[in-house]
Nucleic acid binder design. Structure first.
Lengths: 350, 350
DNA sequence: CACCTGATTGTTTGCGCTCACAACACAGGT
DNA sequence: ACCTGTGTTGTGAGCGCAAACAATCAGGTG
């Protein structure tokens, strides 16, 4: 088991393997790259030599000559939130099984300058494509300016503007949640939204508003949150003071959690007096007090689909006519969300 | 603002810059690498040419000759959990500001084979060092076998066995929590632990057990969880049935959340009848019902300190005597946790 | 038997860069 | 006039690999 090796300072190179196997370095290269036209016997000799020396090809040399880095970049802005960290994970898994390395660039701020820096950084590394865990509309717009320089896809929201991508149908999810609440008998539904300019937040709000409008319900002003439990709590305090509130749709689970807390503090019972519905289905949702009705997103699938799209672009036979990616295949993979019913929602009392 | 460039298929190389600036390629290289002994005027001519061509150095060529990849690897096992994703983020930030790229390898399973694959994968990429977001003792042991081949540090638990690293003092945190509960007047404290073999879980359990033993309290058997809210919920159901339980220390916040849920369902009031304390201080902790007393970990600092240690190893003047890293500088940076008091804990009734 | 075909292997070249070394100019001291 | 040192620039080589091309050998074909 212990790798027996002379441990001469220098690492073995292809020529060493070739010498040991009694072939030319080119034959070693052929074996390494699974080229045809190598005799079985020869191939095995080479493989044995590789094992014996614990040889590993030098990626720098390889990519210098092939002009391919086998690396994809991921730009992430809130890799600390539940959704983004899930997506990052599934992207990495998918990339690995496709034979790519993953290099990450996570940004603290979403200003144009940071975006540019991240793209530059990844380009310096010669990534072959970039997956963006997208969030704000303006950020995606900034990113889109670089789309000519390197293949790029967005992972997350359905409509990332200028970028192709894989996304959850936020609007459909929101609609399902709101329709469900109205069907239970609520006269209208309040909304705690995500931060302005966020794609997911906007789509969810649009879905909410759309259903209310379509059904001729009163559209109460939504309360603006920032995804955090704290902001949900603050919104919840305001909602709790309003006796007419019987149903609240929150743009994510963490805010819903804060709303639940605020309602509890104010003595308003959930679901008897107020129904609360979230979005995401974080693993804790089922264990909140009360367990949270929510809209589930399949983040893992999102990551996989997004990466598929990216690889299509990366491996596409380089642009037939001119600059690729311009208008051509502006595709999107849309993943359907699922409403998960739990105890935080029910019929209104009256 | 728009990058005016001829967009001839081929990217500019150093020779192009040299020609445009009227110098030799070597001078361009000197400018790029901030070498001294370049006249100001010359340097500026070169920089202008670089800007004009939007030239960017080819990293593959550079690392072929320098034998440095400027890349660090991160191995993560549960990049989806709160703590690990935080640490990943802070490691990335720190690496960037030190001028390194980050390549990640996140594993689904922690068996020896997966570990070996991850290390191989990163070595294939010629990373200069590896930061491990450590979790299980056996995994760290498996990793430690590779420590001779590439600098490696653990980020997370205090005592990662054979690896150096930066960690939170789990034991001290647990001790503080348990002592606090005992000081409130509880006769003993129950424990919902993390999964067996996990370093953090073991240290926290040891801290809990130590204080009870020291103070001559009854050491009740701990309940084994798996970090998830679900497992906390199941443990909570059992604890709720036991009337003698007045205080519970949970090895993380998500399990504490499950415990809270179970106690609530069973009609046992928190903190009046039972006090609950968690570990981590997730952002939601303050908004649970009731707000959770917990032990805060500074994950950001952990990541930073861990990376510092790694860079020390990476940039150390390559091994004076023989194989480095063996016994030499087995250092660890220990970060102190902090007990955060909230409403889920209080004096027992009697 | 000369000739072509395809499978297998080897030789040469160059990817873009940094390093070691050489070359040159210009200062001051002898 | 010479040498010596210092700052500045250029030249040549080679990092490890894959692509293009060349060479060799076997087995047909007419």
């Amino acid at each position: 088991m212990p790798t027996a090796k002379p441990a001469t300072g220098a690492l073995p190179v292809m020529a060493d393997v070739a010498r040991l196997a009694g072939v030319s370095h080119q034959t070693v290269s052929r074996v390494l790259n699974d080229r045809p036209n190598v005799r079985r016997e020869t191939r095995e000799k080479v493989l044995a030599a590789i094992r014996e020396l614990d040889y590993r090809p030098n990626t720098a040399a390889r990519s210098l000559v092939t002009r391919r880095s086998q690396t994809l970049g991921v730009i992430s802005f809130d890799s600390t939130l539940y959704g983004p960290s899930q997506m990052l994970y599934s992207i990495e898994q998918a990339a690995r099984s496709a034979g790519y390395f993953i290099s990450i660039a996570s940004l603290r701020y979403q200003d144009v300058r940071s975006v540019r820096e991240a793209v530059d950084r990844l380009r310096d590394q010669a990534v072959e494509g970039i997956a963006v865990i997208a969030s704000k509309a303006s950020t995606v717009a900034a990113l889109a300016q670089h789309v000519g320089t390197v293949p790029m896809v967005a992972v997350g929201p359905t409509d990332p503007g200028a970028l192709s991508g894989a996304g959850v149908d936020n609007q459909a999810g929101a609609e399902a949640a709101v329709r469900y609440l109205l069907d239970l008998g609520h006269r209208t539904v309040h909304h705690v939204s995500g931060p302005a300019d966020w794609l997911d937040a906007n789509a969810r709000e649009a879905g909410w508003r759309g259903v209310l409008t379509d059904q001729g319900r009163e559209v109460v002003p939504s309360l603006r949150g920032d995804w955090s439990a704290r902001s949900g709590y603050e919104a919840g305090q305001r909602l709790a003071r309003d006796e007419s509130v019987t149903a609240v749709f929150c743009a994510n689970d963490h805010m819903a959690l804060g709303v639940l807390r605020a309602l509890h503090e104010a003595g308003r019972r959930v679901p008897e007096e107020v129904s609360v519905v979230g979005f995401d289905d974080i693993p804790e949702a089922a264990y909140l007090t009360p367990p949270l009705t929510t809209v589930r997103q399949d983040f893992a699938q999102l990551g996989r689909r997004g990466l598929e799209l990216l690889l299509q672009r990366v491996e596409a036979p380089a642009a037939p006519g001119g600059r690729e990616a311009s208008g051509a295949g502006h595709r999107a993979a849309i993943v359907a969300p699922e409403l998960v019913l739990r105890a935080s929602s029910g019929r209104p009392r009256s």
